[in-house]
Simulated assay, not measured.
Amino acid sequence: MSAIPNRKVRKSSNYKNHFIVAGILAGIGLALLAYLMFYVAPVETLETVKVVAVTSQGCIGETLDGYAVNIGNCNAEPGDFISALVDQKLKERAALMNPTN
């Protein structure tokens, strides 16, 4: 006889715990996907911008409300007004990082 009593080891094929863990991981994955789709995906609108500079990476424009944006390749000179796609979420993030008040 030993000092440790013989206990039967329970071998259960309880899949309930596996489904709970898989459900939690799937929920986390869906939450991350929703974050990527809603907060990170661009929302581009067509705006009139004033070309400030022409660089090797594209034209830098300033929107009418004062945000600097890279509008890509363009055939304009500094001082010209052109229509370009501007990411609205980029403007929102810039406003949060640089409060005016």
Rank of each mutant, 00 (worst) to 15 (best):
S2H: 15
S2G: 13
S2D: 05
I4V: 15
N6V: 13
R7D: 14
K8F: 15
V9D: 12
R10F: 14
K11M: 02
K11N: 15
K11Y: 04
S12T: 08
S12E: 15
S12A: 12
S13F: 09
N14Y: 05
N14V: 06
Y15D: 07
Y15T: 11
Y15F: 12
N17S: 13
N17I: 13
F19T: 08
F19Q: 11
I20T: 10
I20S: 09
V21N: 13
A22K: 09
A22E: 09
G23V: 05
G23Y: 05
L25K: 13
L25Y: 11
A26I: 11
G27M: 13
G27H: 09
L30Y: 14
L30K: 09
A31M: 14
A31P: 02
L32T: 11
L33F: 12
L33S: 11
A34G: 03
Y35Q: 14
M37C: 07
F38S: 09
Y39G: 06
Y39V: 02
V40L: 08
P42Q: 11
P42D: 08
T45S: 15
L46H: 12
E47M: 08
T48H: 04
T48D: 10
T48R: 12
V49S: 06
V49Y: 04
V49A: 02
K50E: 14
K50H: 08
K50L: 14
V52T: 13
Q57S: 01
Q57Y: 00
Q57A: 01
G58S: 05
G58W: 00
C59T: 00
I60T: 04
I60Q: 07
G61E: 01
E62Q: 12
T63M: 10
T63P: 05
L64D: 12
L64T: 15
L64K: 15
L64R: 14
D65I: 14
D65E: 15
G66K: 09
Y67H: 14
Y67E: 10
Y67S: 09
Y67T: 01
A68I: 13
V69F: 03
V69A: 06
N70T: 04
N70A: 05
N70M: 07
N70F: 01
I71S: 01
C74V: 02
C74T: 00
C74A: 11
A76I: 02
A76Q: 01
E77N: 10
E77D: 08
E77C: 02
P78M: 04
P78E: 07
G79R: 02
G79K: 02
G79D: 02
G79I: 02
D80T: 03
F81R: 07
F81T: 07
F81A: 05
I82S: 05
I82P: 01
I82M: 14
I82G: 04
S83C: 15
S83Q: 15
L85A: 11
V86Y: 03
V86C: 08
D87L: 00
Q88R: 10
Q88A: 10
Q88T: 12
K89C: 03
L90P: 00
K91H: 07
E92K: 13
E92P: 03
R93K: 12
A94G: 01
A94M: 11
A95H: 05
M97V: 04
N98S: 07
T100G: 03
N101L: 12
